[in-house]
Structure formats: C-alpha cells, structure tokens
Nucleic acid binder design. Structure first.
Length: 724
RNA sequence: GGACGGUUAGCUCAGUUGGUUAGAGCGUCGCGUUGACAUCGCGGAGGCCACAGGUUCGAAUCCCGUACCGUCCACCA
C-alpha cells in the first residue's frame, strides 16, 4: 500500500470516524468484574455552535476516554445536549422578531413548535462538530434534557423534593429581567461596576423638621414604606417611631431602627422600598412594613401611581423625579458614585429586584452532603484551588428561585384550584407529557380537595439548571432502575468550564446525593478558559470566537486537538493562537512520514521473536527502547494527574527529537549498508513506532489510525491497546 | 468589601519537593539536506525570571509588601 507523501487529514478523518462507529468501538462492553470508566458530556446548549472552549473540553474528555478504553477498561462516554431554556427561547424570539413577530403572536404551542425546529437544526450541527472532533461517544445513548424520559425524571425530582418539603412557593424579592420577562436566579445576574449618582433627598417630618436619605435609585421612593436608621445612631435616636412624608406624593411613612443600616454610609438614614430591594425587604419583614410594588414586569412604573408616573420607564421616572425634587427643594445634593449594577446574564438588561410569587428550593439541607463530599475527598476537584471557591459558596448557600416565566422548558407539575389548593401531581404531569401537543390546561381535571373542575396548571417552567442538575443519573435512566444506571453510576470523570461550578457542578453533586445517595462522579477537571490574543473571552457575540470547524478543516482534527492541549497547563487560562495548531499539523505530518519511512524499511524484516533479537541489540537500540519505556511511564503518570500539556509534551519530545532526529538517522545508515545489526535496527524501529502510535492515539486519533491501517496489524487494534 | 489567579526570551507559555551555564513552540539569524518529512535537519542570537525587602550557604521557586492585568463571590442605600 502506497502512503501519500504528506498526511492529508481530509483523506482520512470522516472515513475513519465512520468505521469506528460502524464497528461499535464506542459502545462499552459491560464486564461486571471490572470497574468502568464513565464520562457524561457537559451537554452543550442548543443555542448555537460549539466554540473553541468546547473543543478543548471535549478533546480532554476524549483523551481520557480513549486512554481508558485502550487500557481495556469498559468505557462509556454519554453524549447529549441541553434545551437551555432562557437562552434558546431568546434565540428563537430574536429569529421570529425579524418577521416582526413576538412569541405572543404565535401562542405558546406554536412558539414551542418553532423552538423544537431550532433545536433539531442546532443539535445536529453540534453533534456534527463533536464527531468531526473525533469524540468517541456512544451515540446510541444520546440524550436531550427535554426527551420524554428525561422530562419524567425532572417531574420525579420536583415531586420528590416537594414531598420532602424542600420546595416552597412564596413572595420574595427575585431578580427580574424586564426584557426576558422572567425571574432569574442570583447566579444568572452579572454585576458590573457602573458610574452612577448618589442622591441626597430631604424627607419632611410630620411634626416639623426633616431627615435626609441617600439613594442611587430615586424612582423607588414612590414605593417607600419606611425610613430606617441604625439603632446606635445618636443623632436619629429621637426620630425613631416618628413619621416622615415622602416628597412629591406626600405619603406618610414611619421611621424605624434596624441594625442592618450602616452607620457610616450616606446620611446614616435609608429609605426603605421593600418591593424593590432585597435588603429593604428583609428590614420590612422585621418591622411589618407594607410592600408596595411600583415597577412592573416591563420595567415601567405601575398604573396605580396615577397619570403622573404610570407607564413611565423606570429610568425616565428617575430623571423626572430628580427634576421634581430639585424644583421642590428636596434635593440636597448629588455625588458621583460608582456601584455595582446587576445585569441579566443573557441579555445584559439591568435587572429589577422585584417582589414576586415564585417557587424556591431550600438549599441548606441539600448542601450538607455536598460539602462533606469535597472535604472528605470523596469528590476531587482539579486543580484543587477550586475546593475553597466551592466550599465558600456552598457553606453560604441561599435558596434557589427555580420557576421561570418562560415557555421553553419543563413546565412545573403544579396545578392551582379555585379553592386555593396547590396540587403537585406526577401523574397529571406525565399524562400531559404524553400528549403530543402539550397545552396548558388541556385536560379536564378535578380538585382532590373540593372536587372543583376549575383548576389551572402553573404556566411557568423550571430553571434550565434544575434539569441539568440531574444529568449524570437521568441520562442513565433514572428514576427507572435500568441496567445502565446499575452499571455506570457513579460516573468517573467530569471535564468542564469553571464558570459553571455553581450553576451546574455543585447542583449535580447535591442532587446526586439526594436521589442516588452517592456522588455523581469522583473527579472533576476544570479546564482552562480560552481567550483570544487580546485577552478577551472567546465569544461569538463579541465577534472574537473561533469556529473549531474552521480550524479542523484548515489544519486537521489531530492538529487542533494537539494544539489545544499543548497550550493547556493545569487549568491555567490561555490566550489562544493558531501557531500551536500549525505546529500540531507539522507534528501529524512528522508522525506520518516517520511511519512511512519505517514501513518502507521493514520489507525484508520478519517479526523475529524478541528472544532471538534481544542479544543483538546495540547500545543505541537499547537506549531508545529504554527511553520509550520511560515515555510510557511518564504519560501514564501525567494522565493520572490530568496534566495533558505535559503528557503531550513528553511524547512529542520523545517521538520527534529522540526517535526521528536521532535514532532514525542512525538506523538509516545501518539499514542502507546492510550491516549485521540491520535486523536489530528494524526490530527497534518497528517496536518504537508501534508503541508510539498507541501512545499518541488518545491525543491524535486519526493520523495514528490512518497509519495503523497501513501497518501489518490487526485492524483497529490501536483503539484498544495501550503499550506496557 | 472579600477571595483567587497572573506578571519568565519579540509572541504564547513550561519551570515538579529552593541547588551547577533558566526551557519549549512560534518568530528571528546562519549553515545544510532535496530518495521518510522544506509541514525537514544542525547551529546561533535573544531573559537585572514585574518591583522592593526578608529567610537561606544558595531563591524564578519560600515569606512580607507594592504596582499593574484578569477572574469570581458579595443584600451597604
């Protein structure tokens, strides 16, 4: 068989991937006597396509999976995608907006139909990218977070939590995005420092005198229900219990004392707007204050405020009020002030803290086993520095707002009867699931308490992370006791990005202990964040993204994988440059050509037994064989530590500089001259090449397999054989 | 307001428990090979290891501080 003069990735990749898949190499062979190596993919959002960070993440997973598979460990990598509620809904809303439509024009059912179409399109694109990358996933086990079985798992989890009293419905201050028109969790709010103003406003007292408060949000004064001062503030002591009057609208509010008020800030007196500020809300609870909502779900001033403000945008209202306060002589002064402002992580709109009736999960109890898991080392985070970050968050965990006012997602299995009864029903939810076109309130149902038929299903859906928290066991069949669940849970290794340590990793750990009584995985590797040359985050929306498909097309998949790992040091962030990928391409070609040389010179070499050849080995033969052995040992050691950069480096160094540059050059002469030592050289070349290809395979699967086809070896053996 | 990273050759980064002339890839300069590979080989130049102290026989490496860059967490208006 003639080998081309240069390695051309396009001649091999698709064909080789297909034959691996066709021959079932990605499916585990279950052997109950062996502990399997199991990886679940961090399911990519079906919002778009994979970026360079995903390419790195999935390369790392594939390296670990292939490495273990080659060692004869039963290995499973489960692929899948995430419906990504808010993100995907936004995408589809943007898409239909081009035709001048909103989701309300389509209606819930039709809109969801549009999202499913979007999902199908982008999921297939993403899966194509993963296959192009060489990901050796078991595609027969492909999962999606809104598959029917998965949805059943979500219902099961919700109902189970509810029955244990871990979920509750209540009016709390939540983060509201006026553009996405939904609540979002604390983790979905991004805080940015912004230059604003601190306004000092004079509130007259009922019995004469005045008190000045400082605020960054004058518009919320319309919803003030108190002024609070620190109980130890001498100058205000006499005012506690008295009443002040809100300027402009002339409403009376009490002055209360609360320790939460900072003595040193502003004037030491704070206006309290319980419905639009979390701290104010807490104070209002302690003092039984009224809670008046003055900003609505669109971010506009509510109707009840009357013609002067009703319907006005919250920021316009701010300007108007400042003007009015100034005219009325209530504005004492304003200072420029830098403070952090919360933005919606999805659309960057300024989040409005809003008093709202939502569903919450109480987290403290769930956090307990998740804390001890890290402390005891039952779960290991790599690099270890993440332990502290994880524990800090976990030990100060706050309740999680899980309901979303969206359409795309898992609808809450909750019904409300006119009699006030709240019905959480697994049966009903599953019935609705089987309805091919799920519609709110389609079925006639009877309230178990009052027998009324006037009941409606909660239109809200769950936070997308509620469902992905179940991923490691839900994709194996939970709550059914499937053979997969039995064989493959807990999983072994999770590779992911550090920015979802709380959103996803922490919650998987909590739900793993809650439902499986066991950690969902033993090792978590947080890979590097990939930045561009300017140090900016790689992002498609910023136009700084690099499509891994383009890289793979240009340089080849092996080169891309190699180049990414080459730049990745133990989770240290990296500035991505194509140079490393280019070097990967050179390396792939080097491997190809060295192999070509060896094969061209093995023609009259028969696989003589090692015993026969061993005594005839020269010093240089023994040296390179010893170095090979050392390289294998080092590679094992580095992979056990998830040190991919050094694993790749040590093989590269050995293969290129020791084997190619030095040994092959020496062997060349011996073979050409037909020396007595020719057979020994051929033996050594053969041995070093074969083992090197195996060593390289987890990192560069295509070029190694392509060469393997040309070697006189059993087909595909490379995918299941690690050198010793 | 807390916490965590980073600062080493022109660029991107290594540097294991402190120990002889600080490394790699790319780039650059010179030479060579064109029957494995020009996606090649050999050789060279290039670094007060951010700054200031300290510990030590010895510090890029440990400790303290400073500066700049980056990230995360946080209910002070």
């Amino acid at each position: 068989m003639e080998m081309a003069k240069a390695y051309n990735s396009k001649d091999h990749e698709d064909r080789i991937y297909q034959s691996w898949e066709r021959n079932g190499f990605f499916k585990p062979i279950i052997d109950s006597s062996k502990k399997p190596f199991v990886v679940v993919i961090p399911p990519p959002n079906v919002t778009g396509s994979l970026h360079i960070g995903h390419a790195l993440d999935n390369t790392i997973q594939d390296v670990m999976v292939r490495y273990n598979r080659m060692k004869g460990v039963p290995t499973l990598w489960v692929p899948g995608t995430d419906h990504a509620g808010i993100a995907t809904q936004n995408k589809v809303e943007q898409k239909i907006a081009k035709d001048g439509l909103t989701r309300h024009d389509l209606g819930r059912e039709e809109f969801i139909g549009e999202v499913w179409k979007w999902k199908d399109e982008y999921q297939s694109h993403i899966l194509g990218q993963l296959k192009k990358l060489g990901a050796s996933c078991d595609w027969s086990r492909l999962r999606f977070t809104m598959d029917e079985d998965y949805s059943r798992a979500v219902i099961e989890a919700f109902v189970s939590y509810y029955d244990k009293g871990l979920l509750y419905r209540g009016s709390r201050i939540i983060n509201w995005c006026p553009r996405c028109h939904t609540s979002i969790s604390d983790l979905e709010v991004e805080h940015d420092e912004e230059n604003g103003s601190l306004w000092f406003i004079k509130y007259p007292l009922v019995n004469g005198g005045e008190i000045t408060v400082a605020t960054t949000r004058p518009e919320t004064m319309l919803g003030d229900t108190a002024i609070a001062v620190n109980p130890n503030e001498v100058k205000y002591k006499a005012l506690v219990g008295k009443h002040a009057i809100i300027p402009i609208i002339n409403r009376e509010i009490p002055i209360v004392a609360d320790a939460a008020v900072d003595l040193g800030f502003g004037t030491g007196a704070v206006k309290i707007t319980p419905a639009h500020d979390p701290l104010d809300f807490e104070i209002s609870e302690r003092h039984n204050l009224e809670k008046i909502v003055v900003i609505d779900e669109d971010g506009r001033m509510v109707e009840s405020l009357g013609d002067q403000f009703a319907g006005m945008d919250r920021f316009e209202a701010r300007e108007v009020l400042i003007g009015l306060l100034e005219d009325g002589g209530y504005l004492v002064k304003s200072e420029s002030y830098t403070h952090s402002v919360g933005h919606c992580a999805r659309c960057q709109t300024i989040v409005e803290p809003l008093l709202s009736l939502q569903w919450f999960a109480s987290m403290e109890k769930l956090a307990k086993p998740a804390i001890s898991a890290i402390k005891s080392g039952e779960i290991n985070l790599h690099p270890m520095k993440w332990n502290k970050v994880y524990l800090d968050w976990m030990t100060n965990i706050r309740d999680w707002c899980i309901s979303r006012q969206l359409w795309w997602g898992h609808q809450l299995p909750v019904w409300y009867c006119e009699c006030g009864e709240i019905i959480v029903s697994k049966t009903w939810a599953i019935e609705d699931l089987n309805d091919l076109s799920p519609t709110v309130g389609r079925k006639q149902r009877k309230c178990p308490k009052c027998a009324s038929y006037n009941i409606t299903r909660d239109p809200d859906v769950l936070d997308t992370w509620f469902s992905s928290a179940l991923w490691p066991f839900a994709i194996l069949g939970w709550p059914k006791k499937t053979s997969d669940l039995e064989a493959f849970y807990p999983t072994s290794f999770l590779a992911t990005a550090r920015d979802i340590i709380f959103l996803w990793v922490a919650r998987m750990i909590m739900s793993g202990y809650e439902f499986m009584k066991e950690a969902p995985f033993t090792d978590v590797y947080f890979h590097a964040t990939v930045f561009n040359k300017e140090g900016k985050r790689m992002s498609k929306s910023l136009g700084t993204g690099v499509d891994p498909l383009e890289l793979m097309d240009k340089y080849g998949t092996d080169a891309t994988r190699f180049g990414l790992l080459w730049q990745t040091a133990q989770g240290q962030d990296l500035k991505f440059g194509e140079e490393a990928i280019l070097n990967g391409q050179r390396f792939a070609n080097k491997i190809w050509n060295a192999s070509r040389f060896v094969m061209m010179n093995l023609e009259d070499y028969k696989s003589v037994s090692h015993e026969t050849i061993s005594p005839s080995l020269l010093e240089e033969d023994k040296n390179i064989l010893a170095e090979l052995h050392q390289t294998i040992t080092q590679t094992d050691r580095y992979l056990e530590k998830y040190d991919f950069q050094h694993a790749v480096e040590v093989i590269y160094e050995f293969f290129w500089h020791s084997f190619c540059d030095k040994y092959i050059e020496i062997a060349k002469t011996r073979i050409r001259e037909g020396a007595d030592s020719k057979i020994a050289a051929q033996f050594t070349l053969d041995k070093v090449l074969v083992d090197s290809l195996k060593l390289l395979h987890p990192f560069m699967p295509f070029v190694t397999e392509a060469i393997w086809e040309n070697l006189d070896q059993e087909k595909f053996l490379i995918i299941s054989s690690w050198p010793k």
